[in-house]
Amino acid sequence: MRVLEQLGIPVLRVHLRDTWGAWSPLHRKIVVAAGLSARQERCVLAHETEHALADDLGCGVGLDAAHPQAIPQERRADILAARKLIHISDLASVAQWADDIRVAAHELDVTERMLRVRLHDLNGEGWPWPATSKIAG
């Protein structure tokens, strides 16, 4: 939130049907689904902030062949957000005792999805979802 405040980008919480958040470059606003947990909202805001920082075209373009730039934008936003949310020293500390991804994600205050992104990034395996995946924190 601090970065968004510095950039002058407001966050609106509204009912969303098929996603947890979106960046609107036209309106210079981030929309977040109402009713998310604090952990979910934290991860969504980190992801959408990366879109804003990169001045991406927005999340509404869809992940399809008609908009091939959407896939690399989503991938980059996920990876950069995961890197900022999950510091390697914290991950190493939790990895010493957590034997389950749910437990580790909870301890790191991130969603399981964001932790998976970070682990795949560290392993050099790339983005862990197919190109048609919807962003879900």
Rank of each mutant, 00 (worst) to 15 (best):
residue 37 S to I: 06
residue 125 E to G: 13
residue 77 A to D: 09
residue 94 V to G: 02
residue 102 R to A: 09
residue 99 D to A: 10
residue 17 R to S: 15
residue 89 S to D: 11
residue 88 I to F: 06
residue 73 Q to E: 14
residue 20 W to G: 10
residue 75 R to K: 11
residue 41 E to D: 05
residue 55 D to P: 00
residue 15 H to P: 09
residue 97 W to N: 04
residue 60 G to E: 05
residue 107 E to F: 03
residue 86 I to H: 02
residue 2 R to E: 14
residue 58 G to S: 04
residue 20 W to M: 14
residue 83 R to F: 01
residue 33 A to D: 08
residue 48 E to C: 06
residue 107 E to W: 07
residue 9 I to M: 07
residue 94 V to A: 06
residue 90 D to P: 01
residue 33 A to K: 15
residue 12 L to P: 00
residue 4 L to V: 08
residue 79 I to Y: 08
residue 24 S to T: 11
residue 104 A to Q: 09
residue 88 I to N: 03
residue 122 L to P: 03
residue 40 Q to M: 10
residue 13 R to K: 13
residue 78 D to Q: 03
residue 106 H to T: 13
residue 23 W to H: 06
residue 63 L to I: 01
residue 111 T to A: 12
residue 11 V to R: 03
residue 116 R to V: 12
residue 77 A to N: 01
residue 108 L to D: 02
residue 32 V to R: 07
residue 46 A to H: 07
residue 133 S to V: 12
residue 6 Q to R: 15
residue 93 S to T: 09
residue 116 R to I: 10
residue 79 I to E: 11
residue 7 L to R: 14
residue 124 G to W: 09
residue 11 V to M: 07
residue 31 V to D: 03
residue 122 L to F: 03
residue 127 W to E: 04
residue 25 P to E: 00
residue 95 A to N: 07
residue 49 T to N: 03
residue 46 A to V: 07
residue 84 K to D: 08
residue 98 A to I: 07
residue 121 D to S: 10
residue 12 L to K: 15
residue 93 S to E: 08
residue 10 P to F: 00
residue 48 E to W: 02
residue 85 L to M: 07
residue 39 R to H: 08
residue 109 D to G: 01
residue 12 L to T: 04
residue 87 H to C: 01
residue 135 I to K: 14
residue 14 V to P: 02
residue 39 R to A: 11
residue 134 K to L: 12
residue 8 G to N: 06
residue 110 V to A: 08
residue 126 G to V: 11
residue 120 H to C: 10
residue 34 A to T: 12
residue 110 V to Q: 05
residue 131 A to D: 15
residue 14 V to M: 13
residue 34 A to R: 15
residue 25 P to N: 02
residue 21 G to W: 07
residue 67 H to S: 09
residue 10 P to D: 00
residue 58 G to A: 01
residue 62 G to Y: 02
residue 4 L to G: 09
residue 39 R to F: 05
residue 39 R to M: 11
residue 83 R to G: 01
residue 113 R to P: 00
residue 71 I to M: 04
residue 121 D to P: 00
residue 22 A to P: 02
residue 19 T to S: 12
residue 127 W to H: 14
residue 53 L to M: 08
residue 55 D to N: 14
residue 73 Q to P: 01
residue 57 L to E: 12
residue 137 G to M: 10
residue 19 T to A: 11
residue 7 L to W: 00
residue 80 L to V: 04
residue 75 R to G: 00
residue 60 G to S: 14
residue 71 I to N: 05
residue 42 R to Q: 14
residue 48 E to K: 11
residue 132 T to M: 10
residue 49 T to C: 11
residue 14 V to Y: 04
residue 105 A to V: 10
residue 105 A to R: 03
residue 51 H to I: 06
residue 56 D to R: 13
residue 10 P to T: 02
residue 95 A to W: 05
residue 90 D to G: 08
residue 43 C to D: 15
residue 127 W to Q: 07
residue 15 H to A: 13
residue 10 P to A: 08
residue 123 N to M: 13
residue 63 L to R: 15
residue 136 A to V: 13
residue 99 D to M: 11
residue 127 W to C: 08
residue 129 W to V: 07
residue 63 L to T: 12
residue 111 T to C: 13
residue 18 D to V: 03
residue 1 M to C: 03
residue 37 S to D: 07
residue 65 A to S: 12
residue 73 Q to T: 12
residue 66 A to P: 01
residue 63 L to F: 11
residue 90 D to S: 12
residue 57 L to N: 06
residue 51 H to Y: 03
residue 62 G to T: 04
residue 89 S to C: 02
